[in-house]
Design a protein around this nucleic acid. Structure first.
Lengths: 208, 208
DNA sequence: ATCCTTCTGTGATAAATGTTACTGTAGGAT
DNA sequence: ATCCTACAGTAACATTTATCACAGAAGGAT
């Protein structure tokens, strides 16, 4: 166990790893679980050690706009930020591939900042990288049209799963881009005609 | 001077205030100055003590999408984040009302995190509030149409300047919303018909 | 096989936004 | 006053995106 945490978070000092194992609790969640809801109070920070999580921003009308993925070796920046103030969550987190997460209680998260240099650096780096990802999201919706956003979405999905097949229905994709199923179907068809993808039922193969 | 810093940043400890005055340098910039460009390396963190700054995200095509305002008592989260890694700026900062900023060198910024609890808390709170503001921006462009976004833009402007007049041309507003001048003119005209604003040359009066 | 549900494709149409083109007006510079 | 430039209004049209309507195909359940 000690070995695996060290493998997933190679920059953590040995003392930090030991402290985490002492204070954190490793929990498993199945794909589909909602780990966090908009408006919920946050009591923990989660370090992902296995699986994948998607982070969404929810609209009042029930839209679920995809912000980014969380993968092993990463942590939820929002939970860190909110934890520090025990604030409400501004986002929704959904498990998309069975995960194991190390739950770190609020107080430890804050305490370690002063005690463990490698924890401090990890937290700062988490803030930075998540901030940049959200800025990239802003770029996409502010400057690009739906066809480019769809291509970006598919690319990000394949990067996240490390494969070239996207096993999602058009409806699911549409929801995460906050558009309609028909628009996604049409744009995908055009991409197929351009030779960028091959369309199957519940699956999109990326060809380039 | 000590008095005024303490007034603007009331949560800073007296020791921290003293340290800032020792290590920082107070600089003035006129309205219109570009304080930071996309792609520039960041060497300082800036604490705003007077005036106003607007933070933009730039598109490849030269668009300048408004993210948020910075006001006295606030600091540039991005510069803090990037500073910590001496990374390139992902944003552009423009002075919109003559500012005084306290420039904090890279090393100090990092060092104080361990030495001054009130600095640590300020930095964390800065991350949190800027992150939330960017998420609100995402909400606007992901879930809302241009008329709602325009209303939000005007409201935010008047909140920032503390007055009910927006002294900007339609073109300037269009640029910051990444749309065209005609669209802004049309939507403003509709708002005028609905009794929400009164339109003058280079000025929009908010009525409600 | 038959039924049923979900997923996909596509046309028709509507609405929102972007573009082009032109007009008039306000205010500064001379 | 006259000229010039930036700003604002608006019509006409193009493009993009959203919505409605419907048809057919895939795959699971019985």
């Amino acid at each position: 166990m000690q070995n695996s945490l060290k493998t997933i978070f190679p920059n953590f000092s040995n003392e930090l790893i030991a402290t985490i194992e002492e204070n954190g609790s490793l929990q498993d969640f199945e794909a589909g679980t909602i780990l966090m809801r908009t408006g919920q109070y946050i009591k923990n920070t989660a370090l992902i050690t296995k699986g994948k999580i998607k982070i969404y921003r929810q609209g009042e009308d029930g839209g679920e706009f995809l912000l980014y993925y969380l993968q092993p070796g990463q942590a939820c920046a929002i939970s860190m930020i909110c934890t520090a103030k025990s604030e409400k969550s501004q986002i929704m987190a959904k498990v998309v591939e069975d995960v194991s997460v190390m739950m770190i209680p609020l107080q430890s998260m804050d305490k370690w900042m002063m005690e463990h240099r490698s924890w401090y650096e990890f937290v700062i780096e988490t803030y930075r990288s998540r901030f940049e990802e959200v800025l990239e999201v802003v770029d996409n919706i502010a400057f690009r049209s739906m066809d480019e956003r769809l291509e970006f979405y598919l690319k990000r999905h394949s990067d996240a799963c490390g494969c070239s097949e996207v096993n999602l229905s058009h409806q699911e994709i549409a929801t995460e881009l906050n558009t309609s199923r028909e628009v996604v179907s049409r744009l995908l068809k055009k991409m197929e005609q351009r030779g960028l993808v091959k369309l199957n039922r519940n699956q999109i193969e990326l060809l380039k």
